[in-house]
Design a protein around this nucleic acid. Structure first.
Lengths: 186, 186
DNA sequence: TCATTTCTAGTACGGATGTACAAAGAATAA
DNA sequence: TTATTCTTTGTACATCCGTACTAGAAATGA
């Protein structure tokens, strides 16, 4: 038994580059040849590492999820209370440097809504990921029903405001509304 | 000077059928041949009425906008106050019968965020359409800055909750959060 | 009637797409 | 070394795409 070992790191490098391309050019523009050309490799190389195109798209989603989580999760993993956590989350999501990634996020979100079977895991996690963290952040003293209600509202409001921000670019107006909402949590 | 007159009604019929197809099969699945086959016409017929594919997509967006507006706008065109207007808007948007249309709406929204030049008019209007109506609804007595802030928050929250609802289908949880938000407006 | 314009359909062409296949180079274990 | 497996590349094929072109049918005004 022998043979060249599988190069997992190579796949990770390629995937990161592919996600960069997708963030820049759009989710609907992903196809073997243009991506491969941008990366300086042959299309066959991508096929070898990712299998089918659909599997590659799923891999992109997974990596995107990690990136967004890394960019928006709490540094130490915990905040004193929900209001602070929500404020920290908004502060990070409203950073223009993250906008390209969020544009891709919403592009995938919209597409997943019209092709649920293709991106099943995405829709399952898109709310649940944040929900559990935000519920925990409210502590064991908070009524579970209230905690869930508040967490749902925080997720929805932040995402709705982000949608507005990405579409209009009107930072002043959206930030003003965000401040109003965050203040209501305290 | 003579000739067969242009049949605008025919174009409107086709457009409605095309929007039906798009709502059902997804925005990214729109191409001449499958759509034409589903409508029982030749692809050339669609090309004749809509010009290029991009022009057809723009036409779809316009018709979708009319549909959503017709389904969610106030019956008599006015409500006593913002809280009632927001409640009425949420009641109509959370109706499962409208979900397919909203799925398409968010699919286009996400795509427009990654191809702004292609759907320029969409992003310009996607917030402004509701904004003016919601500001007006607060009456002339309300401070303009406050009215804008509140309107921004109403739009963002309703859309964020709708995103959650479409992704998870968890009506109870989302409705509970919506009630909480709507109550805070009174 | 006849000329003119629209509507519909058929055909064809260049290009892009996903993917299968074969071949060559590189890295491991025996 | 040899055998084996992974990596990369080039080629090829069937399919789909948008769209241009042609031609006939239908509907109008002169």
């Amino acid at each position: 038994m022998a043979g060249r070992p599988v190069d997992h790191q190579r796949r990770a490098e390629l995937l990161d580059a592919v996600v960069d391309y997708t963030v820049e050019h759009g989710f609907s523009e992903v196809s073997w040849r243009p991506v491969a050309a941008a990366l300086g490799v042959s299309p066959t190389t991508l096929v070898h590492h990712f299998g089918t195109k659909e599997q590659m798209l799923v891999a992109i989603l997974g990596r995107l999820r990690e990136r967004i989580r890394a960019a928006t999760s709490d540094r130490a993993g915990q905040q004193p209370d929900l209001a602070m956590a929500a404020r920290a989350a908004w502060q990070r999501t409203s950073d223009p440097q993250q906008w390209p990634e969020f544009r891709l996020f919403f592009a995938v979100y919209g597409r997943a809504l019209q092709a649920p079977q293709q991106f099943e895991g995405f829709l399952d996690r898109v709310v649940a990921d944040w929900m559990s963290a935000l519920v925990d952040e409210q502590g064991p003293d908070t009524d579970p029903a209230t905690a869930t209600r508040t967490a749902t509202l925080v997720i929805a409001t932040i995402r709705g405001l982000l949608l507005d921000l990405l579409a209009t670019g009107d930072r002043d107006r959206v930030q003003d509304a965000a401040e109003s909402f965050l203040a209501s949590l305290e």
